[in-house]
């Protein structure tokens, strides 16, 4: 409570007496966190988009024409037991032909009218994979499952866009590594920027620190208000950056929906999750207070008043 009172006094003093310095520090903090927030916003939406490609991914299992009904139940059990798929649908070869005719109605009317045409289409299963398997490990499991299924009697072919899937999973891996790298790089950068900004802010108050030492202020009396102010400034900078990011996001969504509705193709943009917003604010508090603590530690040695 004692330190909180000191902190409030110091905050009032800083904002009234050193307004321009405080505003500059806050802008630097906000700018640094804005870079993190915007990057996270981009990565969040890019991640959603990338994952949505995976969710549309399908596996097709083509059956031979012999003993379809007999094989169907056996293959159906293998598919369900695998636990890899969220949606399983069976299309009999007769139904496949009907569907094909419906699609070709306009282009090949004579073919549609033929009552007894040869049916070259196989019976098949269309399998939609679960979200959990939208990764390299997931695709390895699907690949193993496909190989296993190929060995079963009654299965003619299993197709799942092997080449595309392989490239997609490699891309996912690179993308995740790159995302982590970018976020870590930004966090390290803001620690340096914020550290220097707070250092400059505290350096300008060196004389005050000297005088406080001179009149017998304890270390915690001198340091705590600076550390709490650092934490507060970090929190404020991070909070404001989230607000600016939200305004930017709202503007982008507005522009995208009114001008690029077709391009979005039903894809929706998402703002940062609450957890991520809280994490950014927490990062602000930690970086702000640690930066201030490191800086004040160098200046408040207990002997500052004599080191001129």
């Amino acid at each position: 409570m004692k330190y909180f009172k000191l902190f409030i006094e110091q905050l009032k003093y800083s904002w009234v007496k050193k307004f321009s310095l405080q505003v500059t520090t806050l802008l630097v903090l906000m700018g640094s966190f804005l870079a993190v927030s915007l990057t996270l916003l981009f990565l969040t939406n890019f991640n959603t988009t990338v994952n949505s490609f995976g969710e549309k991914f399908e596996v097709s299992v083509y059956l031979t024409d012999q003993n379809i009904e007999e094989n169907k139940s056996k293959i159906s059990k293998i598919i369900n037991d695998s636990g890899l798929f969220k949606d399983v649908s069976f299309v009999h070869k007769d139904q496949a032909l009907q569907n094909f005719k419906l699609k070709m109605k306009k282009n090949m009317p004579s073919f549609v009218l033929e009552e007894k045409s040869i049916n070259p289409l196989p019976s098949s299963y269309a399998l939609k994979i679960k979200k959990d398997f939208n990764s390299k490990a997931g695709f390895t499991k699907i690949s193993e499952f496909a190989d296993k299924l190929m060995g079963e009697e009654g299965v003619d072919e299993v197709a799942y866009g092997q080449v595309w899937a392989s490239k997609y999973t490699s891309f996912l891996k690179t993308y995740k590594l790159l995302s982590v790298g970018i976020v870590l790089f930004l966090i390290l950068s803001i620690i340096l920027i914020i550290g220097n900004s707070i250092k400059s802010s505290i350096s300008q108050r060196r004389k005050e620190i000297e005088v406080l030492e001179l009149v017998g202020a304890s270390r915690s009396y001198i340091r705590m208000p600076f550390i709490m102010e650092g934490a507060f400034m970090g929190f404020l900078g991070a909070g404001l950056s989230i607000l600016v990011t939200y305004l930017a996001y709202s503007w982008i969504v507005n522009v995208a929906e009114s001008n690029m509705g077709v391009l979005l193709n039903g894809m929706s943009l998402h703002f940062l999750s609450i957890t991520l917003c809280v994490a950014i604010c927490f990062l602000g508090i930690v970086v702000g207070s640690v930066g201030a603590a490191v800086c004040i530690n160098r200046m408040n040695s207990g002997w500052a008043a004599t080191n001129e």
Binding site: E213, L214, V215, G216, S218, R219, Y221, G302, W303
Partner: peptide, 9 residues
């Protein structure tokens, strides 16, 4: 270092 403030008081 921790005793200095009390001395200066």
């Amino acid at each position: 270092s921790s005793a200095i403030p009390n001395f200066r008081k």
